[in-house]
Design a protein around this nucleic acid. Structure first.
Lengths: 122, 122
DNA sequence: GATCATCGTTTACGCCTGTAATTTTTCAGT
DNA sequence: ACTGAAAAATTACAGGCGTAAACGATGATC
């Protein structure tokens, strides 16, 4: 499984691939306060975990994701759902509702989503 | 922050408090395959993290949660939401919908939930 | 071809985690 | 008070993580 710091690197790859280590550092260094060596280490760990791949480009490598964001999001989401909500979505949403964490926009979008499901249905 | 193994211990405390280490072991040992020392260690770490408290009861302690399940669930859920869905609930639900992970029951419950929100509204 | 700057690779290191074994403390009974 | 069982506290230890420094390879330059 991929760690949180590793996920930060993946996110920038998912935005735009392939990228060199230098480009990734430029993207992520300022926000995270990471040095070059840190990014290099994370990339190597991701390589070892087969979450990214590297293609030589002259003296450097260009990295791209092998793990898709969809796959990652699914793993993480299912993990949380299973651990905390008995694997069901409605209780999760109910939780946020009780917490008053549903925005107007969320509610509108959820409504539309349910309508669309309704349409598919019939 | 509390780890996954620690969360397993918390879950049994949340079901019924307070409990002795022995009772917790009885609950969790078989399912997790943990020895006595393992549970004791986890309890001590949870004490250090102030997630549980212990009250002497003769030669042993009775443990109870200080962190509530609500607090824990909120932290975890918000963490996932922020990291993966821009902090918004609707995209999370959309994700599960696309993944065909919404059960009939989920859909029915979500519908009811939205109706209730509607009622509060007016 | 030797040298320097650049990448990448290897090693480091302290903290957290999972999983105990070991040691110490504490009652209960003699 | 002394001993033994039971509980708790301390220590252990390997692997992962965050964060880099050190080392090595490689291509560009003189």
């Amino acid at each position: 499984m991929i760690s949180e710091a590793e996920a930060v690197v993946m996110e920038v790859l998912w935005l735009h691939e392939p990228r060199s280590a230098e480009e990734i550092l430029a993207e992520v260094g300022p926000t995270q306060g990471w040095q070059e060596g840190t990014v290099k280490s994370l990339l190597n760990r991701l390589l070892k975990k087969k979450a990214v791949q590297a293609a030589r480009d002259g003296r450097r490598y260009l990295y791209s994701a092998r793990l898709t964001r969809e796959q990652y999001v699914s793993q993480q989401s299912k993990g949380l759902l299973d651990r905390l909500f008995g694997g069901r979505v409605a209780p999760l949403v109910a939780h946020f509702s009780e917490q008053r964490k549903l925005s107007k926009r969320d509610i509108a979008e959820l409504r539309k989503l349910l309508e669309e499901l309704d349409d598919e249905q019939r």
